Amino acid sequence: MNEKLLYPSADFEDTALLRDVSHAVQSSPSRPDRDEVGDGRPITYFELARLMERASRRFSGLVRAELTKLGVDDIGAAQAMVLLAIGDAELSVAELLDRGHYVGSNVSYYLKQLADGDYIDRVASQRDKRSARIKLSEKGRRLRADLRDAAMAYERTLSRGDQDRRNLETAFQTLHQLELVWGSASRYGI
Rank of each mutant, 00 (worst) to 15 (best):
R54N: 14
I86R: 08
G38Y: 12
V82P: 07
V25G: 04
L96C: 00
V82K: 09
G61L: 06
S60C: 11
S108T: 15
L111M: 02
E47Y: 13
S60D: 10
G117M: 01
E36T: 09
D73A: 08
R50E: 10
Q79E: 12
I43P: 07
V103C: 11
G76H: 00
Y45D: 11
Y45H: 10
D35G: 02
V103S: 13
I75E: 08
D39V: 05
L96N: 05
L91G: 02
P42A: 06
L96S: 00
S131F: 01
A55S: 07
L84E: 01
K112Q: 04
R50G: 11
S125P: 00
R57A: 13
S30G: 08
L111F: 05
Y45V: 09
D121I: 14
V93M: 10
L114F: 05
V25P: 06
D88N: 10
E90C: 02
S108K: 15
G61P: 09
A89D: 02
A55P: 05
D118K: 03
R31S: 04
S105W: 15
L97Q: 13
Q26D: 10
Y110M: 03
K69D: 01
E90R: 08
R31V: 04
Q113C: 02
Q126N: 14
V25A: 10
K129G: 14
G87V: 06
R122E: 00
D98R: 15
S131C: 09
P42K: 11
G61V: 02
I43N: 01
V72R: 01
V107S: 12
D73S: 07
D128P: 12
L114Y: 05
V25S: 07
Y110K: 04
D74N: 09
D35E: 04
S60G: 12
M52A: 14
G71W: 02
Q79P: 07
A49K: 13
V37Y: 02
E90Y: 08
S30A: 01
L91A: 01
I43F: 01
P32F: 06
A78P: 03
T68V: 05
S105R: 15
S105G: 12
V123Y: 13
A124H: 12
A85C: 05
G100D: 07
N106V: 12
A94W: 06
P32E: 03
R99Y: 04
S56Q: 15
H101D: 15
D35L: 01
E47Q: 10
D35Y: 08
Y45I: 08
E66H: 08
G61E: 04
F46H: 10
K129C: 12
M52W: 11
S131R: 11
K112Y: 06
V37L: 08
L83I: 09
I75W: 00
I120C: 00
I75N: 00
L91Q: 00
F59L: 15
Y109Q: 13
D88M: 02
D118V: 08
Q79F: 05
